[in-house]
Measured scan of single mutants.
Amino acid sequence: NMVHPNVICDGCNGPVVGTRYKCSVCPDYDLCSVCEGKGLHRGHTKLAFPSP
């Protein structure tokens, strides 16, 4: 899995490795796959980016 450079997960404050989930509503909100799997930020649609 690749690390998305200059992207920090807003759920756990860790690096985003593998798929990046970017909120389509909020201007700067990203989740890693673990936090997305936990259902964080469920109210907004997210775009999935498998690689940087």
Rank of each mutant, 00 (worst) to 15 (best):
N1M: 08
N1Y: 03
N1K: 15
N1P: 07
N1I: 09
N1T: 10
N1F: 03
N1W: 00
N1C: 00
N1G: 03
M2G: 01
M2D: 03
M2T: 06
M2Q: 08
M2K: 11
M2N: 03
V3H: 09
V3P: 07
V3Y: 11
V3T: 10
V3L: 10
V3R: 08
V3F: 13
H4I: 10
H4M: 09
H4V: 13
P5W: 03
P5A: 04
P5S: 05
P5L: 15
P5R: 03
N6E: 15
N6P: 05
N6Q: 14
N6A: 07
N6S: 09
N6V: 11
N6W: 04
V7L: 09
V7A: 07
V7E: 09
V7H: 04
V7K: 10
V7C: 10
V7Q: 05
V7R: 06
I8Y: 14
I8F: 07
I8A: 10
I8N: 12
I8H: 10
I8D: 12
I8W: 08
C9Q: 01
C9H: 00
C9R: 00
C9E: 01
C9W: 00
C9Y: 00
D10K: 15
D10M: 13
D10A: 15
D10L: 11
D10P: 05
D10Y: 12
D10H: 15
D10R: 15
G11H: 12
G11R: 05
C12I: 00
C12N: 00
C12Y: 01
C12H: 02
C12T: 01
C12K: 02
N13F: 10
N13D: 04
N13M: 06
N13S: 08
N13W: 05
N13Y: 08
N13I: 03
G14L: 10
G14W: 03
G14N: 10
G14K: 09
G14V: 12
G14S: 11
G14M: 09
P15Y: 04
P15K: 13
P15Q: 08
P15V: 11
P15D: 15
P15G: 08
P15M: 09
P15L: 09
P15T: 13
P15N: 09
P15E: 15
V16T: 09
V16R: 02
V16G: 01
V17C: 14
V17P: 11
V17T: 15
V17E: 09
G18Q: 05
G18R: 04
G18I: 02
G18T: 07
G18M: 04
G18S: 04
G18V: 03
G18K: 07
G18A: 04
G18F: 04
G18E: 09
T19A: 09
T19P: 08
T19W: 04
T19H: 04
T19G: 06
T19E: 12
R20E: 03
R20L: 10
R20P: 06
R20K: 12
R20D: 06
R20M: 10
R20C: 11
Y21R: 03
Y21Q: 03
Y21K: 02
Y21F: 14
Y21P: 03
Y21A: 02
Y21L: 05
Y21T: 03
K22W: 04
K22Y: 05
K22D: 01
K22Q: 11
K22E: 05
C23T: 02
C23G: 03
C23S: 03
C23Y: 00
S24R: 11
S24F: 04
S24D: 14
S24K: 12
S24H: 08
S24W: 03
S24G: 06
V25N: 12
V25L: 08
V25Y: 05
V25I: 10
V25G: 06
V25T: 11
C26N: 02
C26S: 01
C26R: 02
C26V: 01
C26M: 02
C26D: 03
C26W: 00
C26Q: 02
C26E: 02
C26G: 01
P27F: 08
P27A: 07
P27I: 07
P27K: 15
P27V: 04
D28S: 10
D28K: 15
D28V: 05
Y29Q: 02
Y29M: 15
Y29E: 02
Y29D: 01
Y29W: 03
Y29K: 03
D30K: 14
D30H: 12
D30N: 15
D30V: 09
D30A: 12
D30T: 13
D30P: 02
D30G: 08
L31D: 01
L31M: 08
L31I: 07
C32G: 00
C32F: 00
C32D: 00
C32M: 00
C32K: 02
C32A: 00
S33V: 07
S33C: 06
S33F: 06
S33T: 12
S33W: 05
S33H: 11
V34P: 12
V34Q: 12
V34S: 13
V34R: 11
V34C: 11
C35A: 00
C35Q: 00
C35T: 01
C35L: 01
E36P: 00
E36S: 05
E36M: 04
E36A: 04
E36G: 01
E36Y: 09
G37W: 06
G37N: 13
G37Q: 09
G37D: 13
G37M: 08
K38D: 05
K38Y: 05
K38R: 07
K38Q: 10
K38M: 06
K38P: 01
K38C: 05
K38F: 09
K38G: 05
K38S: 08
G39L: 06
G39F: 02
G39S: 10
G39T: 04
G39Q: 13
G39K: 09
G39V: 02
L40N: 13
L40G: 06
L40E: 11
L40R: 11
L40T: 12
L40M: 13
L40I: 15
L40F: 12
H41T: 03
H41I: 03
H41L: 03
H41M: 06
H41Q: 02
H41E: 02
H41C: 09
R42F: 13
R42L: 11
R42M: 13
R42S: 14
R42D: 15
R42C: 13
G43L: 11
G43R: 09
G43D: 15
H44C: 05
H44P: 02
H44L: 02
H44W: 01
H44S: 02
H44K: 01
H44Q: 00
H44N: 03
H44V: 02
T45N: 14
T45R: 13
T45H: 06
T45A: 12
T45I: 13
T45F: 09
T45Y: 06
T45P: 08
T45C: 06
K46T: 11
K46P: 05
K46V: 12
K46Q: 04
K46L: 15
K46H: 11
L47R: 10
L47S: 14
L47N: 14
L47V: 14
A48C: 14
A48D: 13
A48M: 15
A48I: 15
A48W: 05
A48H: 12
A48K: 13
F49Q: 14
F49C: 12
F49W: 10
F49N: 12
P50M: 08
P50C: 08
P50T: 12
S51L: 10
S51F: 06
S51T: 10
S51R: 06
S51N: 15
S51I: 07
P52S: 09
P52V: 07
P52G: 00
P52M: 02
P52C: 04
P52L: 04
P52A: 09
